[in-house]
Amino acid sequence: MKNTLKTLLAVASLAAVTSASAIVYDASVDGLVNPAGTFTATGGDLVVDTIDGVTFLGVEDPVYNPALDRAGSEIDLGQSVTVNFSEPSQLISITLGLLFNGPEYRDVVEVARLTANGGTSYTLSITGEDTAVWSNGGVVVPVMAPFSTTYGGGGVFKIVNPFGSLAISSLLLEPVDNSNEANNSDFGLVAFEVPDSGATLALLGLALAGISIVHRRRR
């Protein structure tokens, strides 16, 4: 009985500080639906597209403007995608695609900027075919396929724990003007994951219920 109580207490403690599972958005599965909230766009309409095997959420300008050089479905200069979360929570990871250091698609030294809650901004700068730097430190994992066979590099990058423990209610994704003679930065949102607070509360509730049963049986 004593060991059972210890186990239940341990589960309750774990549930209080970590999530039992995560809410995952995958553009190839969820499309325009944000399972953790909603999406909004500026500079065009939200669109899901697939380029060279990578499916992503981007922005499509219904009227082509040659002066802005905005064509296609990536998030381009003057455009943005905002990920709105129903419940503020830590961002476990986010995956961005179609980011290169050249010469792919004439995209050179592409930079993506992520701004949390309208204030905290960091950038992802592409330094090679399968390398990138996140300005907040942390881990950047190249997702090699399918660009590994097409261009010899990644093009898709997963940033792990990009904002630390910051609780995020909104996340703005936009390209950075790198004043390059070639095409400026453009990219798409491939995936993200946040803790599932509902699963955490359910686990905590089960643990506390178990503790209550143990106490009643010991009386």
Rank of each mutant, 00 (worst) to 15 (best):
G102K: 06
V190G: 04
S86F: 01
V160C: 00
D186K: 14
N180G: 14
G154Y: 01
D196I: 11
V160P: 00
T82S: 01
L124W: 05
N184V: 08
V109T: 13
V160R: 01
F157P: 02
G119D: 04
F192Y: 15
S179Y: 12
S148C: 00
V141F: 01
S185P: 10
T131W: 05
I159L: 01
Q79L: 07
V59T: 08
A71W: 13
G198C: 08
V111F: 05
L166M: 07
S179R: 14
Y122V: 03
A191V: 00
P142I: 01
N161W: 00
N84E: 06
S80P: 06
N180M: 13
V143T: 07
V139D: 10
G198M: 12
G153D: 10
A167P: 04
V109H: 15
L57T: 06
L171E: 08
S170H: 00
G78R: 11
T127E: 15
L91T: 04
G119S: 11
E104P: 07
N180R: 15
D69C: 12
P175N: 10
V176D: 11
Q90L: 13
T123Q: 14
P142T: 02
T123L: 06
S179N: 14
S170Q: 09
L96Q: 04
V59S: 07
V140Q: 02
G154M: 01
V156I: 10
D76K: 13
P146E: 01
L166G: 01
G153P: 07
